[in-house]
Amino acid sequence: MQKQYRLLYDENLCIGCQACSIACRVENSVPDEVYRVQVHMQTMGIFPNLGMHYERLSCVMCENPPCVSVCPTNASFQSKDGLVHIDEKSCISCKYCILACPYHARFINPLKNVVEKCTFCYETRVSKELSPACVSICPTDALTFGDMRQSNSLVYQKSHKEVLLFPKAHLGTKPKVAFIPNRKGAKS
């Protein structure tokens, strides 16, 4: 049975603590000074009418992934579950996919000289029915992960309850990561 994964990022719950970033680094042995995931915070507004914008930067696992269509060696590919992965062996590190990604999710692993990005921890966790490390670790339950084909899953229920936004939806990439926008504070 194929999966229809979704990762929900609730800006209202996120506190920008970077636990996800460290968990990702530890789980995936991400080399120093490069990141598969970061959460950025930006203060909006003029004192004392302020707000904070929280943004999660990582691969959004597009259904129409530009990185896959531009890859000359098919090293970037989409699995049958719709996840985008990189075959390290056939990646020639031409960096075309890095430039093609509108989400800045890809980077060069300086130790291996291949392109790298978030995998939803597929190999080490998701394929074993565990949540991705970032989801598991999140101190405030800001991340929800699961299969949208299962109507009893938390991710399904939350998706149907909340207003969801998909990052850069106008590009037609159809991300599997959605976010629930901030409800409080100044927005600009």
Partner: peptide, 8 residues
């Protein structure tokens, strides 16, 4: 406090 942003 999220580390280097050089990769972007």
């Amino acid at each position: 406090m999220w580390g280097s942003v050089e990769q972007y």
